[in-house]
Write a protein that binds this DNA or RNA. Structure first.
Lengths: 104, 104
DNA sequence: CACACACATAAGCACACGCTTATGAGTCAT
DNA sequence: ATGACTCATAAGCGTGTGCTTATGTGTGTG
């Protein structure tokens, strides 16, 4: 919900990797676990932490749960960054970046 | 240097508060300590951590050390966020935000 | 009904982390 | 030179965190 939780949650490398992988698309727990050398409870706990920070949401489907990133989950982090970033690129570079973003 | 260290370092509330306060301008260690209920070594260790992540730089002046935020320190975090953010505001809102940023 | 499957929760454990006090290293003043 | 001052480092300690195994809860399948 707030940037404090988000920083804390994303500080863990495994959890960040889970989030990044989940950013590629909705995925079930077992599918998400493939590629990770980690026990099922560990992944479940990481998911709970990500969920608690508002970064992930879940969609139950039978005995499966499909996880996906909450589109607005990173908004507090973005706001924090915008507020405390000391380095702002020049106007021209910002426009260039914006155009690049819009064209992708 | 990389987003892993930055997330880890900024996960601590005290350290984040130190960084935020330092973002208001260059400051010496003793001045920075005022307002924090913390020992001098603790602050020194937090500063070392922030420095290790590339978020802070120092400028020695006699027996004092003036600390200030590294202008490009948050760049890796910004890049990470730009890479993994699922939610992008609309074009119009982005332009509005950009204009607001430029006018401040 | 019984069993397999997907996921969550509980309990315990090893380790990391942030704090403290004590001390070291360097600089200014008398 | 001696003492005050600023900051860094060392050592030790309590707590938090992430992992494990064991178990619980709910849902499909035979």
């Amino acid at each position: 919900m707030n940037e404090a939780d988000i920083f804390k949650v994303l500080a863990d490398p495994t959890r960040r990797a889970v989030f990044e992988r989940l950013a590629q698309g909705e995925m079930t727990g077992t599918a998400l676990r493939e590629g990770f050398v980690i026990s099922q409870p560990a992944l479940s706990q990481h998911i709970a932490a990500l969920r608690g920070a508002g970064l992930i949401r879940e969609r139950r489907e039978g005995r499966n749960v499909n996880y996906s990133v909450d589109p607005e989950g990173l908004a507090p982090l973005h706001e924090w960054l915008a507020r405390h970033r000391a380095f702002w690129p020049s106007r021209i570079e910002r426009l260039r970046n914006l155009i690049k973003e819009m064209d992708q």
